[in-house]
Every structure is written in structure tokens, then in C-alpha cells.
């Protein structure tokens, strides 16, 4: 299996606080990998470092065989490493359509952008209905769909989703996970950060559990689901 992303011994400090203390993980081609862990475990810091908005103090990030440690975020987007941030961060005063167009900022080919936007509208018809509305007027679930749709326009090869289920009703969580599954089936590698371990392990094939900036447990989704530590801490009895 070819490797899309390889993170080795990553160290990140916020001032004197060590956020990551030698974290390693890999994501293979067309694989969905889940990153689990409590608040403050370092999940968001990990994806932020991969996408170039947080500086690594040590360790390496390799994507598609290239060293991309501390590369510029726009170069990483151009390589197809797309990060959907926590809290969705859609542009609330741009229309839904404009939000999608912004997602294709690094794509030079205007026709490709239009085709991909049409595909996203097919996949997420709610967005098509609301294409002229300002992003900020959408519901939380619709905003999450828009954030994922916006990422799709860039043509991701590795999609990193930070807490896509946060603050959503259970039915909406299921819909978001369905979309994630569709994306994986199309061959895109996905790194999925979740506190909702139950939902995440349904779509992911493998997972890592983070604690205080290091990986404490890793393995296939089935193995993690059966691991008593995971059950106790994240899945409930």
C-alpha cells in the first residue's frame, strides 16, 4: 500500500507548553484513518501542523514522498492536502456558491472548478438549493456540508476533517459520515479527527488514539472498538 502521509516524531510547542511530543502516524492511499482523543490531546495541533498553519519544532511530515515539514499552507493545498478546520470556518458573508469557488482558489482551470462544483451540488443537493444564500444563514449541519464541499473543489488527495460532527444532531452526524464514506469510496485518503469515536470508527479502517501529544493506542477500527481502554474512555459501556 502506498503511503500518502507519513508523520514521524512530530514535536510542536506553544510557548513552553508541549502540544505534541513525538507523534507518528501514517495514512495510506484511499484509506480513512481516524484520530481519536480527548480535548487537548493534540488532535487539532496535528492536522494544523500537517497543513502548515502550526510550526513544527521537530520531526518530519512527508506527503506523497516529499518532505513538507513546515511548508507554506498554499503550497500544501496545491499538492492536494486539504484541511477542513474545526468549527467549519465557512465565509459567512459570501454566498454558498462563492464559498465553493473560494475552495478552488488554487485550481487554475476554471472549467474544472465548475465541474467539481456541479459534482458537489449533486452530492449535496441542499447546497444547490441554497447556492445564492449567505453562508452564515445556513444551519450548522449545512455549514459542515458546505465546508466539506468547499474542500472537495480543491481536488483533495488527502482530506483532513477536524471534528466534522461537532455540535450536530445525531441524524446530521450520520449524514456527514455518509458523505465522508462517499469521499473515501471515490479514492481520497481521509484523516478524520473525532471526539465521537463511535461514529468515526464506523467509517475509518484504522485509528490512532492520542493522549497528551503522543499516540497511545493504534490499530484497525475493529481492534480499537474491542480494546477495553477505548471502550471505557470513548465508547462508553
Amino acid at each position: 500500500m502506498s503511503t500518502v502521509l507519513q508523520v514521524t516524531d512530530l514535536v510542536v510547542n506553544y510557548g513552553k507548553v508541549e502540544a505534541l511530543r513525538g507523534l507518528s502516524l501514517t495514512v495510506g492511499a484511499a484509506e480513512t484513518v481516524s484520530l481519536l482523543g480527548n480535548n487537548g490531546a493534540g488532535k487539532s495541533t496535528t492536522v494544523g501542523t500537517i497543513s502548515g498553519i502550526v510550526r513544527a519544532a521537530g520531526g518530519t511530515v512527508t506527503a506523497f514522498g516529499q518532505d513538507v515539514t513546515n511548508a507554506k499552507p498554499w503550497d500544501l493545498v496545491e499538492m492536494g492536502i486539504i484541511h477542513v478546520p474545526e468549527g467549519r470556518r465557512i465565509f459567512s458573508r459570501l454566498t454558498v456558491h462563492e464559498n465553493l469557488q473560494i475552495g478552488g482558489y488554487t485550481v487554475r482551470d476554471g472549467k474544472a472548478i465548475d465541474t467539481r462544483i456541479a459534482e458537489v451540488y449533486d452530492l449535496l443537493p441542499r447546497l444547490a438549493e441554497r447556492r445564492g444564500q449567505q453562508g452564515g444563514t445556513l444551519s450548522g449541519g449545512e455549514q459542515q456540508m458546505l465546508a466539506i464541499g468547499r474542500a472537495m473543489i480543491a481536488g483533495p488527495k488527502l482530506l483532513m476533517l477536524d471534528e466534522p460532527s461537532m455540535g450536530l444532531a445525531p441524524l446530521m452526524v450520520a449524514q456527514v459520515m455518509d458523505v465522508v464514506r462517499t469521499i473515501t469510496e471515490q479514492g481520497t485518503a481521509v484523516l478524520l479527527i473525532e471526539q465521537n469515536a463511535r461514529a468515526a470508527l464506523k467509517v475509518a479502517s484504522r485509528g490512532y488514539v492520542l493522549d497528551s501529544g503522543v499516540v497511545t493506542i493504534e490499530g484497525s477500527a475493529d481492534r480499537l472498538r474491542a480494546d477495553p481502554r477505548v471502550v471505557e474512555a470513548y465508547l462508553g459501556a
Binding site: 497543513s51 502548515g52 498553519i53 507554506k72 499552507p73 498554499w74 500544501l76 493545498v77 496545491e78 486539504i82 484541511h83 477542513v84 478546520p85 470556518r89 465557512i90 465565509f91 459567512s92 458573508r93 459570501l94 462563492e98 469557488q101 473560494i102 475552495g103 482558489y105 488554487t106 468547499r150 480543491a154
Partner: peptide
């Protein structure tokens, strides 16, 4: 235009713009 759209996006959320690949 694309640049103009980027400008409006930055005025709302510069950090998210980095993730869109906007310099």
C-alpha cells in the same frame, strides 16, 4: 474576480483563507 473574492474572504477569516490555499 478570483482575487476580489479572496479579498472579501480574508476580511472575514484570514486563517481559514490559508487553508483555502490563498497566499
Amino acid at each position: 474576480t478570483r482575487s476580489g473574492r479572496a479579498m472579501r474572504a480574508i476580511s472575514q477569516d484570514p486563517k481559514a483563507c490559508l487553508l483555502m490555499g490563498i497566499n
